[in-house]
Design a protein around this nucleic acid. Sequence first.
DNA 1: AATATCCGCAACCGCTCCGAC
DNA 2: CGTCGGAGCGGTTGCGGATAT
Length: 399
Amino acid sequence: MNIIMQLLLLGANICMLFLPLHILNIRPFHHFKVTLQCILHHHYIIHSAFLLFLLSLFSQKMGRPPCCDKSNVKRGLWTPEEDAKILAYVANHGTGNWTLVPKKAGLNRCGKSCRLRWTNYLRPDLKHDSFTPQEEELIINLHGAIGSRWSLIARRLPGRTDNDVKNYWNTKLRKKLMKMGIDPVTHKPVSQVLSDLGSISGFPNTTTTNQMAYVNKELVMNNMAPTKTEPSGSNKSVVENTQEGQVHSWQHHIPYQVLTTENVQSQVFSETASSTSSSSSSNLTQLGSPQSYSCQTPQAQTGPHCSSFDWSEFLHSDSFVWSLNPSSLVQSEADLSINAKTNGHDKQGVSAVEGCCGASMEYQIKKQCEGHSFVDGILDRDSELRAAFPELLDASFDY
DNA sequence: AATATCCGCAACCGCTCCGAC
DNA sequence: CGTCGGAGCGGTTGCGGATAT
């Protein structure tokens, strides 16, 4: 009798508390749900059940609930037993509807967590060994072209996940580029980035000096050599910024590959669009191979050496590419819009390609196909800048 | 040998997109 | 048209091993 009275009393109290919120449709209210559950569960299990019942009644008006009750699911590293359960479940039922997987597989995990564990670690087609130089090279090329679109980049690397690529970039490749004096975000020489900063903001030289000092401090803090100023615009400047051997190794073993327009359009564009087609797997496999990135047109291979690499053109490569061959891009965009409609989940990738790949990547490709590699362009431009602004670059050591 | 610091990686979080209803 | 739920993405966190002091 006492329990019944308590239940009724609690129910009335909760109704008094919940009903106005329910009527007012206050959505953030569902954040209290778990907390209230925890408090009541500690002392009054029956009350908690009653509360849950009420909550379920009100849930229609509480907005989107969390994907799982995070306070009651296990988090952190996975045990071999848990892995075995996932593997067994997937072997029997396949993937899909991950929210049901924990329940069906007997796991006390969030469904999202299960999906991540499968896609990032347990999938049988994953490689668990270290990245090869070819993979490194591909990541750098693609990052330079499309930025940190890790999932798109990972699709070119069979057996690698977006998480793998992202981690590898953040821990290794980014530092490697910085060590070479190349800004890992823009893939330009640090000096050029600072020069752009100065010209865009209209800061006087003193400010630019401070910026240089800041970046050099960053380099020092990252255990990297600050940028040395080379007299008379030597094209060895970047090489001498760092340990020579490393850069030579970089340039010889991890060169920026030469790409053709056709390759990029067929690779990056079709990759996002063809994921639903039967030929997607062959495309992706082909994309992962380094030779697919070599310049195939004899004209390009024997073309004139590009002596000047204009970074402002690189920055505004959208218009540049349009002026080069607008008709082909119109065609590409038309294809993309069709593909985007037929493959909704890749729309993000398509738009990314439209925004990034179609422009800057294509520009790089054209430049590279003219026999002028990306690194060559960086080095040339860096040398020009050093020759043009020796006093500006010297000032970087004034901090 | 003990402690501090660094580093790599697995996992998590918050957000967006998209199809179904 | 608005809402819900699944899926995916990119950024960030934190654990555990490696290395330095």
